[in-house]
Simulated scan of single mutants.
Amino acid sequence: MPQPTDLLAVLIDADNVSPARIGAVLTEIAKYGTASVKRVYGDWTKPNLRGWKDAASEHVIQPMQQFDNTTGKNATDSALIIDAMDLLYTGRFQAFCIVSSDSDFTRLASRIREDGVTVYGFGEVKTPEAFRNACDRFTYLDVIDQPESDAATTALPRKRVPSKELRGDTKLVFNLRASIAAASDEDGWAHLGGVGSLMRKNQPDCDSRNWGYAKLSDLAREIGLFTVLPNPTGGLRVKNGRK
Rank of each mutant, 00 (worst) to 15 (best):
V161Q: 12
D136S: 13
L176H: 00
M1W: 03
S101A: 12
K38Q: 14
N240Y: 00
A182Q: 13
K159M: 11
R200C: 06
I81R: 02
S149R: 10
T45Y: 05
L156G: 10
V195F: 00
T170A: 15
D145G: 08
L156W: 07
V17E: 01
I12E: 05
V195P: 01
V25R: 05
T233P: 00
I12T: 09
H59I: 03
W189Q: 11
S110E: 09
N74Q: 09
K164R: 14
A9I: 03
T118Y: 10
L49N: 05
D145P: 10
D207C: 08
F122Y: 15
D115R: 14
T127V: 09
V119H: 05
Q203S: 10
G116M: 11
K126E: 13
R237V: 04
A220C: 10
E148L: 12
G42A: 11
R21D: 11
V119G: 08
E186V: 07
I29R: 01
G196D: 07
R158N: 12
N231A: 07
G168R: 09
G42P: 04
G193E: 01
R237T: 04
R132L: 08
E148C: 03
I98Y: 00
R21Y: 05
S184K: 02
N175Y: 00
L192F: 02
R132C: 12
G72W: 08
R111M: 11
K46E: 14
W211I: 00
R209F: 04
V40N: 03
R137V: 09
A190E: 03
F226W: 01
S217K: 08
A14N: 02
D187Q: 15
A95D: 03
T27D: 14
G42Q: 09
A56F: 04
A84H: 06
P128K: 04
L198Q: 07
S184V: 04
G91V: 09
E222P: 01
D218L: 12
V117Q: 03
Y120A: 01
N202F: 05
K201T: 09
D102I: 06
Y120V: 11
T76Y: 03
G188R: 10
K201H: 03
R160N: 04
A75E: 01
E129D: 15
L156E: 06
T154V: 15
I81H: 02
L236T: 06
A155D: 14
N16H: 02
S110M: 12
M1P: 08
I12C: 08
